[in-house]
Design a protein around this nucleic acid. Structure first.
Lengths: 198, 198
DNA sequence: GTCTATAGTCCGATAGAC
DNA sequence: GTCTATCGGACTATAGAC
C-alpha cells in the first residue's frame, strides 16, 4: 500500500535503485572515487536526475549510511542483548550471520571505514560515533561468561577480529563467512573454559 | 655514499619526497581519490615534474608498494621466524612494534587493502599475493606452542585481529598500539595454557 | 630535470524547458 | 520527475622549450 499512489503503472523505485548503486560504488571505489555520473548511468538517469533525489554527493552518502543503520543494524542485535542470559558468542554469531547475507553492504562499510579514518572525510564522525555506540552498548550488557574473563578485552579483541575476518571473506569470493567465524570462535572462546557459555 | 654523486650541492631527494607524499595521499584519499596535482604541489613540483619520476599514476602506486615491501616487511619478521624456538606471540609483537612507528604506512595499507578488494583495483593482485605469502610462511613455520593448539586457526584469527586493532588505533590518535595489542595477546594466548609460550 | 602549454576527458552542481 | 545545456574547475597525460 505504500507503493506509488494513484493509478500510475508499476515501475522501479528510483530511490532504492540509486541507493543500491551507491552502495556498490562506495564499496568498490570509495567516496572520493565515486561519481554521480556512474551512478546515474547505472540506474538509467542523468546526473541531474540523480541530484533531484539526493541533492548532493554528500547527501547521497548520508542517505545510504542512515538508511542502513536504521533498518539493519539495530533490531537483530538488540534481540540478543535482551535475553535472560546474554552470550557474547551468540551475539557475534548473529551479527556475522546477518552480514553473510549482505556482502555488498559489508564491502561498503569496510571501504568507507578505512577511507573515513581521515578526520576530513565526510563520514568520519559517523564511524567514530558508530564505534563508540557499539562498544558502550556491549560493555554495559551483563554478559554471561566464565569467572575470571575480562569481557572488555574480549569484546574489543573480538570486534577487531570480526573486521579483519570480513575483509578476508570479501577478498576470497568462494568462502563462507559463517564458517570462517566459527573458526574464530574456537580462538576467542577456548573450549574447556567456555563450555556451557557458547 | 649512495647520495647524489659528484659535487652537486645537498638538496632534497625528490624521489623520496614524492613517495612520502604519495603514502600520505593514498592513505587519506585512497588511490582513486589521489591526484598527481596534489602530490606535485606537496613536493613543490608541477604535474609534469612528478610524472618524470613515476611515469604514471599506476607507476607511482607500484613504486610505493614495492619499496615498502622490500625495505620494511621482510627482515624484522624473518629474524623471528628463524629462531630456535619460534613463538607466534613474539612474531606478532615484533610486527606490531614496527607498525607502531609507521602510522602513515599502516594507514595507507589499511585504506588500499579495503579499496583493493575490488578485482579491478590496480593493487588487487598485490594484496592477494601478499596475504597468501604471509599466511603460507606462517603456516610452514614450526611454531612452539602448547599441545592441542590449532596453529592455523590461531594464525588466521590473529592476523585478522591485527588488522582490526590497527584500524581502531588509527581512528583514535592518542592510543598506543603496543598496549592495545598487549590486551589482544591476553585473548589470543590465555594464560594458564600459554604459560611459557609467550 | 623541470618547466609551460595543451589535449581530451570527467567532475559536481545549477538553470530552465517540458 | 526527468531532461538538455552549461558553468567552472580538476583530472591524467603528452609534447616540446630550456
Amino acid at each position: 500500500m505504500q507503493r506509488t499512489t494513484g493509478n500510475r503503472p508499476a515501475r522501479s523505485d528510483r530511490r532504492a535503485d540509486i541507493l543500491d548503486a551507491a552502495i556498490d560504488s562506495f564499496g568498490t571505489r570509495g567516496y572520493y572515487g565515486t561519481s554521480l555520473q556512474k551512478i546515474a548511468t547505472a540506474v538509467g538517469l542523468t546526473k541531474a536526475g540523480v541530484l533531484h533525489y539526493v541533492a548532493s554527493k554528500e547527501g547521497l552518502l548520508e542517505l545510504v549510511l542512515n538508511d542502513i543503520y536504521d533498518s539493519q543494524t539495530s533490531h537483530v542485535t538488540q534481540s540478543i542483548l535482551q535475553l535472560d542470559r546474554p552470550l557474547i558468542s551468540r551475539y557475534w554469531r548473529a551479527t556475522v550471520a546477518v552480514n553473510a547475507e549482505r556482502p555488498q553492504l559489508v564491502h561498503m562499510f569496510s571501504t568507507l571505514s578505512a577511507e573515513a579514518l581521515d578526520p576530513h572525510h565526510p563520514a568520519h564522525d559517523y564511524f567514530e560515533q558508530r564505534e563508540q555506540a557499539t562498544v558502550s552498548i556491549a560493555l554495559s550488557t551483563p554478559w554471561s561468561a566464565p569467572a575470571g574473563v575480562d569481557c572488555e578485552r574480549l569484546l574489543r579483541a573480538g570486534f577487531s577480529m570480526m573486521d579483519g575476518i570480513q575483509l578476508r571473506w570479501l577478498r576470497t569470493p568462494g568462502k563462507d563467512l559463517n564458517a570462517m567465524w566459527a573458526d574464530c570462535e574456537d580462538v576467542l572462546f577456548p573450549l574447556p573454559l567456555w563450555d556451557g557459555y557458547r
